[in-house]
């Protein structure tokens, strides 16, 4: 049985389509990763799951409860840690947790036990009684995470929880996520850090332009590419004509598949080479025959970035840079205000 089922979910902000008929199923007790560049629709999806915004179309079922019809029950089931950490600078960390516990109607004994337990788990003893305004980014993230976990939710929604964090805080949060998953909590983790998703997630959905472009376990998604990832350049900065010629040469070699021209990396050619065959020597011969020299050639095991590249024609990093330039963060911030 699926813990969360998202059916044909759509959401637009004025003329911008944030989610476009999204379908996702998430199993109970799994750590589900959402991977995609900024502006792909991850935060919008998580805000809808957290009942902060309403979708235009589609349905979400959590524990078979319709989110749109019974949002209050859903709120009891979820813990939400937003991308932007919003703390009350004047309150101490302990006061903030105490405040949060009252909003979740926890009784006094349970509340204090839980607060102490989270302070220990997230190693916050040394600074919990200082005002939140004095915290570093890592401390803020940890207190925010503690607030989301206070009422022991069935589902924890984490929107890019490790962005800009120091190694120590990142490790603590990763360890905590793994422990929570092992205890049976369903975790939805959005990130654009490939290593984070690869390391932690049982299942991942790759999102681009509001659509799920692929879904599965990180290993399955990588294996689906079916070989080693090769990146080839015949000169440092090539051009379209040249790269198309090489693409044609490559496409004739048996065992080479999924050839993509990566424009942002100087028209490099990225493709999958069958591991069983000795393709690299054959490739060198064919290129030499066509009077091309190899400027660079790298061979690696496929990563999630390759999965993304295969599906979109861009690396995640390139998509990130492109989207960041396109977005109006001030406008988005105003639109996200109630």
């Amino acid at each position: 049985m699926h813990h969360i089922e998202i059916r044909s979910l759509s959401k637009s902000f004025r003329n911008v389509i944030a989610l476009d008929g999204l379908n996702i199923k998430i199993g109970k007790g799994s750590l589900f990763g959402l991977l995609g560049p900024n502006g792909a629709g991850k935060t919008t999806l998580l805000k809808i799951l957290a009942t902060l915004i309403n979708p235009d179309n589609g349905e979400i079922y959590i524990n078979n409860i319709n989110l749109r019809k019974d949002p209050r029950t859903i709120r009891e089931l979820i813990g939400y840690v937003a991308q932007d950490i919003a703390l009350d600078k004047v309150l101490t960390g302990r006061e903030l947790l105490d405040f949060q516990a009252d909003l979740y109607h926890m009784n006094k004994i349970k509340k204090y036990e839980r607060i102490d337990s989270l302070i220990n788990q997230l190693e916050m003893n040394d600074w919990i009684d200082r005002k939140c305004g004095t915290y570093s980014g890592g401390m803020k993230r940890r207190i925010d995470l503690a607030a989301g976990l206070l009422h022991i939710p069935q589902i924890l929604i984490l929107d890019e929880p490790t962005v800009g964090l120091d190694i120590e805080s990142r490790e603590i949060i990763w360890k905590l996520m793994t422990n929570l998953r092992n205890q049976g909590m369903t975790i939805i983790l959005s990130s654009h850090y490939l290593d984070e998703i690869d390391k932690l997630a049982d299942c991942v959905a790759i999102i681009n332009n509001g659509k799920v472009i692929d879904q599965g376990s990180p290993t399955d998604l990588k294996n689906k590419l079916g070989g080693d990832r090769i990146s080839l350049k015949v000169r440092e900065f090539s051009n379209n004509e040249e790269s198309e010629t090489i693409k044609e040469i490559l496409s004739k070699i048996d065992g080479i598949s999924q050839i993509v021209v990566n424009i942002s990396q100087g028209y490099s050619l990225n493709f999958i080479a069958d591991r069983e065959k000795d393709l690299l020597n054959k490739l060198k011969v064919e290129l030499a025959f066509a009077k091309f020299e190899i400027f660079s050639l790298t061979q690696s095991q496929p990563s999630l970035d390759d999965v993304y590249l295969q599906a979109t024609g861009n690396t995640l990093q390139d998509a990130e840079i492109f989207m960041t330039g396109k977005r109006d963060f001030r406008k988005e911030s105003k639109e996200s205000m109630r």
């Binding site: 957290a50 902060l52 709120r75 009891e76 937003a82 919003a86 909003l103 979740y104 109630r338």
Partner: peptide, 11 residues
């Protein structure tokens, strides 16, 4: 500052 969202997510 987004603190209202913290309140709105609570049941």
């Amino acid at each position: 500052f987004g603190f209202l969202n913290r309140l709105l997510v609570a049941p």
